[in-house]
Design a protein around this nucleic acid. Structure first.
Lengths: 173, 173
DNA sequence: CTTGACCTGTCTACCACTTCATAGTTCAGA
DNA sequence: TCTGAACTATGAAGTGGTAGACAGGTCAAG
C-alpha cells in the first residue's frame, strides 16, 4: 500500500505525473483512506510499471492505453509504427545538426574570428560544462552522428591526428 | 508587398505561425492597409527568411531572437550549445528504438506468433505506406541507426544474405 | 451589385506534463 | 495537547510552436 508520492518515487516519476495519468484515465482512480488520501495497491504498481516500460520506449500515452486496455490490440504494430516515427525524428535532428555546422562554417568564413578548440572549451566551461561533461558530449556526438562529429572537429581547426584520437576515445567512451 | 498568408506560404509557414511570431515579438508588427490588413515588405521578408534558416537548424525562437536582435550576442556559442543538445536528444530517441526492439523480441518469444517480413509489410501497407515509403523508411533507419536496423531485420526473420542486400540499397538509396 | 475567395482578430486544442494557489490531513516531538 | 513540518487534495494556468475553427470584413472579377 502506497501514497501517491511513495508510488511515484518508486517508479521514478513525480506525484503530479501520477495525478495526470489518473486524470487522463491511464491509471484507474485508486481507493482512498479515511482522510481522502489515495491508497495504491499491488495492481496499481504493476500497471504503472508497465506504463513506465512503454514510456521508456517513447510511446505516446494514447498508444500505451491502447496496448494496456485493449488486449486484442496489436502491440507489435504500434511498436513498429513508433520505430519508424523515431527514424524520421532522428533524421530531422541530424538535419538540424548539419544545418548548424553549415551556419558555423559560414560564420567562420565571414568573420575573421576563427573558432578554435580553446575558444570552444572556454565557451562550454562558461556554460557550466565540466571536463567529464565534454567527454560525454563527444561520446554522444560520435555515437549519434560520426560524420557530423568529424565535421565539427574540423571546424574547430583541430589537426587531423588529434581528431582521430578524440574520435577514438569517444567510441570507447 | 505581401499579406500574411502570402508571406507565410512563401516561406513554407502557416498564417498562425506568423501571427504567433508577431505576438512573441520575433517579427515586428507590420504596417497596415486601408482595410487594416497586414502589409509586409522586403525587410520583413529578409528577417523571416533568417528566422527560417535558424528554425531549420532546430533553434528555439528565444535563441533566434537573441541572435537577430542582440548583434553582440555570440551566435556561435548558441549554435554549439544546440549542437550538443541535439546529440542528447538523438541518443534518447535511439534508446527508445532499442527499448522497442527489446519489447518486440520479448513479444516474439512469448507469443508463438512469429513476426515475418510479409506480416510487417502488410501492417505497413495497411497503415498507408507505399513501397517507396518503405524504401525511405529503411534508408532513414540505416542512416540514423545502422545497428538497430540490422537488429530489426533479424527480428523479422529475414535471411542474412537478404539483410545484407536490404542494407546495401538502404545506404545507396 | 453580387459572388466567392481571401482576409481579419480571437479563440481553442494539442502533448505531457509542471507549477501554483489554497486548503485539508497526518504524524512526530515537546 | 499543541505546534509545525511534511504530507495530501483540488483546480487552474502555463509551457512551445503551431493548427484549425469561427464570425465577420475586404477585395477583385464578372
Amino acid at each position: 500500500m502506497w501514497t501517491v508520492s511513495k508510488l511515484a518515487r518508486r517508479c521514478g516519476l513525480s506525484r503530479s505525473t501520477l495525478l495526470y495519468y489518473e486524470s487522463v484515465g491511464l491509471l484507474p482512480p485508486p481507493s482512498r483512506t479515511d482522510g481522502n488520501y489515495r491508497r495504491y495497491g499491488e495492481e496499481d504498481l504493476r500497471r504503472l510499471e508497465r506504463i513506465c516500460v512503454y514510456r521508456g520506449a517513447g510511446l505516446r500515452l494514447e498508444d500505451i492505453r491502447g496496448i494496456l486496455d485493449r488486449p486484442d490490440s496489436d502491440a507489435s504494430s504500434i511498436l513498429q509504427r513508433r520505430l519508424g516515427e523515431l527514424n524520421t525524428e532522428i533524421e530531422t535532428l541530424r538535419a538540424h545538426q548539419r544545418s548548424i555546422l553549415k551556419l558555423l562554417r559560414n560564420k567562420d568564413l565571414r568573420s575573421n574570428e576563427v573558432v578554435t578548440k580553446e575558444k570552444w572549451v572556454s565557451i562550454m566551461k562558461a556554460s557550466g560544462f565540466t571536463e567529464a561533461d565534454m567527454k560525454r558530449w563527444h561520446a554522444a556526438f560520435e555515437s549519434s552522428a560520426p560524420a557530423e562529429h568529424q565535421e565539427f572537429l574540423e571546424f574547430l581547426h583541430i589537426p587531423a591526428q588529434e581528431i582521430a584520437s578524440i574520435r577514438e576515445w569517444s567510441r570507447k567512451g
